[in-house]
Nucleic acid binder design. Structure first.
Lengths: 215, 215
DNA sequence: CGATTGATTGACAAGGTTCAAAGTGAGTGG
DNA sequence: CCACTCACTTTGAACCTTGTCAATCAATCG
């Protein structure tokens, strides 16, 4: 994959930074959104909330990520954005960005590609939630995160910083925190992962991939 | 909502029709796709398949629908397309369509809008699969289909043709056919729906919406 | 008619949830 | 330095939703 973020970093349109503390809601579904938000630093999540408090994490937004390509074209979004760690974020001015896009067709191509990739990701997520069991979902989540972080050079010796609470993992996989805890215990016991104090090590990549049903 | 399909119908680019029989795979994930397929007649489904045979229906494609806006920009797709009923379908030539898009900025707007709507739909699906129970999922599926068919004038007296087998409903909601059967039984018993010989009647819309957690 | 496909039902198992309690670890203030 | 708090993790037991297996029933079709 091409360096995932270069095109974003090169755009000289960035506005002032904002900082959000962990657990803070950065954006509320439906709110007017003047800019196109990107996460500069820290982890955030796209979240769907049900009326009775149930939550589904639709994706994790990692440093350098556009929150969603939707924001480039639409003035509001249908999901919440929440900070997981302390998050530094900023926005492109939508008008500026669109002007820029008009001038550079190659940028449009990249953006469209990102949008299609986002769609494929959600299709994947829906498939995982609908048809995979707890162990599979969690294994895939970890491997997926590892892949994304690897592209950023944030993985060393099969290990990376994982700032997620078990509640986050639960909300991302459609499970309860208690069950996440048990599955993590099992994965640990089987020697597939080591997870403590915010560091996840994929101790047995092949084994985890087998569980994740990844060829 | 604007007439959902007018822009598609007006494009004079349509190619020859093809016909697929029920249960037939119209497109296989990864296959080269020269055209941009649309469903002219009948119901199809976007389907994700796991290696062990599990299946997840990602969306139902109704008459007049583009299968996916992805096909406008990409030469292959990451899901299967399968016929549910007998399906008449055809494709726009991608080059033709793109040329046309270049000439008509308004068309681009419509297409981008459709793409964003597709993303929101999948987000919805993921949320349903991850965080809602069987009854909720099925109730929402029915109400969602009703809404889409209503926009096409295919709903009369709260009733519409539903060509789905219980297996389809199961694959769309992440359940087993047996459990779908039981939930349908319950919904019938509670007087919320009437379903037989391919006709679904929403007998108690308010009640079903309550179950569906739709305000 | 036999064959096939789908719907329905029952008995049982399993995966996951709920509730509740206890354990752990990192601040924080005295 | 200790006690206290807070957020999170871990564990157990009971429970519930959904899945599995298997059989029967119903409808359609050549």
């Amino acid at each position: 994959m091409a360096p995932w973020t270069s095109w974003l970093e090169r755009l000289p349109l960035r506005r002032s930074y904002q900082v959000a503390r962990p657990r803070q809601t950065i954006y509320r579904a439906g709110e007017a959104l003047d800019g196109v938000p990107i996460i500069c630093d820290g982890w955030a999540a796209r979240v769907s909330r049900l009326s009775d408090g149930r939550r589904q994490i639709l994706s994790f937004v990692l440093p350098g990520d556009l929150v969603s390509t939707n924001a480039v074209f639409a003035g509001s979004l249908n999901f919440f954005v929440e900070a997981i760690t302390t998050v530094r974020h900023s926005s492109y001015d939508r008008a500026d960005l669109n002007e820029r896009l008009g001038a550079e067709p190659s940028l449009i191509k990249i953006l469209v590609g990102a949008c299609l990739a986002e769609k494929d990701e959600i299709d994947q997520l829906a498939t995982n939630l609908g048809r995979r069991r707890a162990e599979e979902r969690i294994a895939r989540l970890f491997l997926h995160l590892k892949e994304r972080l690897d592209a950023r050079g944030l993985v060393r010796d099969q290990s990376f910083a994982l700032p997620l609470r078990q509640q986050h993992i639960a909300d991302a996989t459609g499970l309860t925190p208690v069950h996440v805890n048990r599955v993590l215990g099992a994965l640990r016991t089987e020697g597939l992962i080591e997870l403590s104090s915010g560091i996840l090590k994929i101790a047995n990549p092949a084994g985890l991939q087998r569980i994740a049903d990844l060829r």
